[in-house]
Computed example of a mutant assay.
Amino acid sequence: MKILVLIVLSISILFGDKTLKIATYNVENLFDLNKGDYRYEEYKPNGKSLWNKKNYKIKLQNLSHVIKDIDADVIALQEIGSLQALKDLRFALKQKGLYYKYYDIADKKTTAIKVAILSKVPFVYSKELSVTKGYKYRNILEVKLKIDSKDLYIFVNHWKSKAGPESMRIISAKALIKRVKEIGYDKNIILLGDFNSDYEEYILFKRKRKHNDTSGKTGINHVLKTLKQTQSADKVKYTKNSFYNLWYDTKTENRYSYIYRGEKEALDNILISQSLLNKKDISYKNNSIKNFNKSYLFKKKNIYRWQTTNGRIRKHKGKGYSDHLAVIAKFVVR
């Protein structure tokens, strides 16, 4: 019997489960110092706004400090200005001892800010998913990973802000779900990023009539079909062709990644396909969803965002991080 126990323990050590940490982080306007590309006025380099080498370096150091502390295996990023900015962030991380060998950015469309990804896990492929041909909508980044012969699809999103009505976010949601149907709902799929939508957007936006131009329909709840699974992960029941929003697997008071006028909001989300709930192959680790809410990321009761002055010309102060908190979840690879 003792010999059998030793054999079982040895097998567990050699062939035990692996944990995969996946995160998403809106870094708030990381622009490089190159001239000529489309960008916001206050990020034109070496001008009156003081977006210069000094402040750019501080921004890179501050963001890399956060990402180093998160230490995810895969991290999705939003509001990256260019491939150069992504490479500079990656280099800053490498200097801190965190090396992401694999990376990509959705930069085929000339939008001011783009989505990107950093990964310790190699890509089978990475490609852009076009939402529309116009420039109102940012492309979605699709990445396929293979982990111990198991496929995992990740889609990095940054949907239209609340400056636009819900119909604009539905357009992104429909493009996303069309691609999901091509892959198959039964596959291991993670949808994550800044959706500019709460996990219960269909309830919240009823109070904001300027957003509800869709007769109550929302992209995150109705198009991605997250309405029927609102329990914690250990209680949720399988619902065909639906996605489970991981925010339901933590306490209500912890479900936020953004603070607007004192109100906590969950604009950043991680949604998973049903196969990631079945405890086979790759699966979500229960109770692992959280926002990255270290004390240094707050100033009083607000998130310590990147600081600029007010006024006609906003000047960079060289302080702060991002106006969003990162969101993290863990997955078990069996």
Rank of each mutant, 00 (worst) to 15 (best):
I3P: 02
I3Q: 12
S10K: 07
S10V: 00
I11E: 05
I13N: 04
L14Q: 15
K18D: 15
T19Q: 14
L20T: 11
L20G: 07
L20M: 15
V27Y: 01
D32C: 00
D37M: 07
Y38I: 10
Y38G: 00
E41R: 14
E41I: 03
E41T: 13
E42D: 15
K44Y: 06
N46H: 13
G47H: 04
G47R: 08
L50P: 06
W51P: 05
N55L: 06
N55H: 13
Y56C: 00
L60R: 14
L63F: 04
S64K: 09
D71W: 06
D71Y: 04
V74T: 00
I75Y: 11
L77Q: 04
E79I: 11
E79R: 11
L83G: 10
Q84F: 07
L89I: 06
K94S: 10
K94P: 05
G97N: 04
G97P: 00
L98K: 05
K101N: 09
D104I: 08
A106K: 10
K108C: 07
T110I: 07
T111L: 05
I117F: 05
V121S: 04
V121D: 09
V121F: 12
V121Q: 13
F123L: 02
V124C: 00
K127W: 00
E128N: 09
E128W: 06
V131P: 00
G134M: 04
Y137I: 02
L141I: 11
I147Y: 02
K150C: 07
I154D: 02
S161N: 05
G164S: 14
S167F: 04
R169V: 12
I171A: 13
A173L: 08
K174M: 12
L176W: 08
I177E: 13
K178D: 12
V180D: 02
E182I: 15
E182T: 15
E182G: 10
Y185M: 08
K187D: 00
N188Y: 07
D194V: 07
S197F: 03
D198S: 02
Y199R: 03
E200F: 14
E201G: 01
F205R: 00
K206D: 01
N212I: 06
T214A: 11
T218E: 10
K228H: 05
K228V: 01
T230C: 08
A233V: 13
D234K: 11
D234Y: 15
K235L: 14
K240D: 12
F243V: 01
N245M: 07
N245P: 06
W247T: 13
W247D: 12
K251M: 14
T252S: 10
Y256G: 11
S257A: 05
Y258A: 01
R261E: 15
E265T: 08
N269Y: 03
N269W: 01
S273V: 07
Q274W: 08
D281N: 15
N287I: 02
K290E: 03
Y296I: 01
K301R: 13
N302F: 01
I303V: 08
I303D: 02
Y304D: 11
R312K: 15
R312W: 15
K315I: 15
K317H: 02
K317Y: 09
S322M: 00
L325F: 10
L325D: 08
L325T: 12
A326V: 14
A329Y: 15
